[in-house]
Design a protein around this nucleic acid. Sequence first.
DNA 1: ATTCTCCGGTCATCAAACCC
DNA 2: GGGTTTGATGACCGGAGAAT
Length: 363
Amino acid sequence: MAKSPAGKKPPSARLPVADRPPAAPARLKDVADHAGVHISTASRALDPLKERRISPDVAEKVKASARALGYQGNVIAASLRRRRSHTVGVVVPDLTNPMFPPMFRGIEDRLQQIGYSALLTNSDFNLEREWQLLDMFIKRQVDGLILATARLDDPIVRAALERGMEIVLMNRSTAGTAVPAILADEPAGIREAFDHLHDLGHRRIAHIAGPQDVSTGRTRREAFAAVAASHGLEAGPRNVVIAGQFSEEAGRRAALHLLESGFAPTGIVAANDALALGVYDALDELNLACPGDVSVTGFNDMPFVDKLKPALTSVRIPQYRMGYEAADELVARLDDPARPVARRILPPKLIIRDSTGPVRQSA
DNA sequence: ATTCTCCGGTCATCAAACCC
DNA sequence: GGGTTTGATGACCGGAGAAT
């Protein structure tokens, strides 16, 4: 494939540079001309990483010209050459879940430090939608992905990895494949919630588990079983009910099923706050008091659960920090793709409020 | 149908100018 | 002589649209 010889340049059919409209945004060339330096020099002077190689006088002159012309730079053009879009795609399963805004703030704050921005999207728990989003992110040439949607076996994650995309999982992990992830120490969180109920005298403790095809649902259920066993208590079909989704409605149905069975729990460990809300609904319907008849704990401590009646006792996970660390890990991987796959585990903390109380003596 | 040009900026590289 | 700064050049990125 020989290159055609360079040579004649036919007159451009497009708008000649000299005829650019006066309002057209300043280009680097304009800044260079204004400062009386070469475009290469202007480029170096405005690049923080290369500024050292330019004399202070010249650098200041170029910067002054950039200010005078209102030069903003052209990120698209730079991305084209550098093959970096300086953009990161973020997918969360449910934007209406108040847990995610703090996470996104953390992501934004970390990315902003290196001049990156994030595209936030919502999958609505829908696999087809996730394929569309992956497609869109590929077309937009994002430099990496932060996913809060991972399933234990996730075709999206596999497809993205096969394309060589940099991914960091947030809040959820996959089984098998090693993928960088930022997670809460869920077993520790479940143990705190269980022990709290146990300390209050509860012995008939049940678990509303989340979907078992995602790590948060599976891990928390397994942790519940382990803690129950360590106390010599049961964790079987009678007191562990699996909700199909992490939603209030799924929690309500699971709780009704549980409360109308023979187990008659005095304490319920819900696998997340949305499920705990559903437990509240079920208790209302059955005219049971919380915490008088049944104590309830949630997980995630999402914003506003302290405003519920009764205020929800919940396992707090550091949401902002989780987002911040996810972005931080992604940034590190963009710098060094050969970096070993890391999992960062963040400590949870039980926040005790009004939804848990001593077991009723007659119970 | 294929090739070329263009957009704006970056990069690598070499050459020239300058200073100590 | 040797190091630093600046200029010059051409390739390049991806896709649209013009030219051939």
